[in-house]
Simulated scan of single mutants.
Amino acid sequence: MELNLTNKRVLITGGSKGIGYGIAEAFIKEGARTAVIARGGDALKQAASELSGLQTIQADVSNEAEREKSFNEALRLLGGIDILVNNAGGSAGSTHLDTPVDTFRGAMELNYFSALHYAQLACAEMKQHGGGAILNISSIFGRESGGKPSYNSAKAAMISMTKSLADEVIQDGIRVNGIAPGSILHPTGNWQKRLDENPEKINRFVEQEIPAGRFGTVEEVADTAVFLCSERASWIVGATLNVDGGQSRSNF
């Protein structure tokens, strides 16, 4: 299937490793001009050395001023923006009762407010040029309990924003969608760390919790991402698709 992504200008947050890196790699393979934003300088240098043509921007996306600065730098490097992928995120804390409110605020800033802010900035640019696509990477735990509460809450907000923003901007030719990954295994992720620490426990988790009988891969998320951002997905608006091998227990 031809996705017609050649020379599309793509910006990905949290794109130096893991799922974000995989999405960047997939867009580059499709011929897109791709830039990633991440906090770690070493990881950015490594990504740039591995992915030919990748543009890198170092910034802390939980900081509003750095978001604006990094977005303007992306516009300079790419000459504009056609596709935004909000992938930056992370979890912190433990239970509701044992997690300080400030930790919840931090989770919202990193996972939700960063995505909202970059989307606002991108929409302003996209409206001037006839449209574009925004993709928000959330989690199946934005729809159901299972992850850390601070993370769940932020990803739930992201899923809600995906639908409401999509309805606002589709008339301007901007499509907004999302992906809710399940448990994805990659070398820099938490699941790999847990698997190394206690393989018996994690293998039992996979057997009991993932109907497909294995972890998902970064490539499976990335393949979905490039499709949703392409013109082949032109009638998909405001959807957040589970990419989880059946792991989610929700029926919507």
Rank of each mutant, 00 (worst) to 15 (best):
H117L: 12
W191K: 11
N136S: 13
S230Q: 08
G142F: 01
P149H: 07
N152H: 08
Q55M: 07
R33A: 09
E168K: 07
K17F: 05
L75W: 01
K8P: 09
P181F: 05
V243H: 05
F252H: 14
G41N: 13
E125N: 11
M158C: 06
G80W: 03
E209C: 05
S49N: 13
L78M: 06
Q192P: 02
R67D: 02
E207S: 14
T6Y: 04
G189D: 06
G79P: 06
R175A: 12
L110P: 00
N111A: 04
G213Q: 09
L44R: 06
H117P: 02
V176I: 13
G90N: 07
G216A: 01
K29Q: 15
N87I: 08
K17E: 13
S230K: 06
V36P: 03
G146E: 00
E64V: 07
A26G: 11
N111C: 07
N72S: 14
G245S: 11
L165P: 04
A59E: 03
D102Q: 14
T13F: 05
A154Y: 04
V176P: 04
I23L: 02
D172P: 05
W191L: 14
D60M: 02
S114G: 10
Y21W: 12
A180S: 15
K163W: 08
L121Q: 04
N177L: 07
F227L: 12
L77A: 13
K193C: 00
A47Q: 00
K155W: 08
V169D: 10
L3F: 15
G131R: 05
A32F: 06
N7H: 13
G93Y: 07
I202P: 02
G216E: 00
F71H: 03
L228K: 11
F141R: 01
E197M: 13
A133Q: 12
G41I: 10
S234H: 14
H117M: 07
A122I: 03
R143A: 12
E66S: 08
A35L: 08
L44E: 00
S138A: 15
G142V: 01
G130Y: 06
R175S: 09
I83F: 09
E144K: 01
P187L: 08
I174D: 13
L3P: 02
W235Q: 09
L54V: 11
G90C: 02
I19Q: 07
M158Q: 14
I184V: 15
T103A: 04
G90R: 02
A212F: 13
N177Y: 04
L77I: 12
K45P: 02
L3I: 07
T13A: 05
G238A: 09
S49F: 01
Y151P: 00
K29C: 01
L165V: 15
A233E: 11
I81V: 15
G40A: 03
E73G: 04
L77E: 10
V10F: 00
V226F: 08
M1H: 10
A156E: 10
P149W: 03
L116G: 05
I81Y: 01
Y112D: 01
N72D: 14
A48S: 14
A48D: 04
H129Y: 11
G40S: 15
S234R: 15
S248Y: 03
W191D: 08
E25C: 07
L116N: 04
E207Y: 09
K201C: 04
A47S: 12
E73V: 03
T95A: 12
N7C: 07
S183P: 06
L121K: 05
K148I: 14
N190R: 12
